[in-house]
Amino acid sequence: MGWFGFKKKSSGDVAKNRLKLVLSSDKAGCSPETMEQMKNEIIQVISKYIDVDTEGLEFRFRNEADGSNSLLANIPIKQQAKTRRSY
């Protein structure tokens, strides 16, 4: 953080940001921005049919035993009063 209008980003922060980018592209082959976009689009599609709980959402890449990666999306569904009553 600079004291006068111009600010030079510290190289420690540059390193951290570069790492975050490179790690997500290592795993997914795309940038965090693309990941975010993909996540939002997936939620949009599912929301058309089910009421999803965006709070407890989990969306990440996971290493598998055979060395491959898989996309893990855990999307909780909101409990609906109507559904519960019907049981």
């Binding site: 390193a15 490179v22 790690l23 290592d26 060395g67």
Partner: peptide, 21 residues
């Protein structure tokens, strides 16, 4: 170490360790 190369490799290693339970 707190360097981009070492941390990137550590991330890969952690992934492999997790995959090997």
């Amino acid at each position: 170490t707190p360097e981009v190369s070492a941390v990137r490799d550590a991330d890969r290693i952690i992934g492999l360790l997790e995959a090997n339970e």
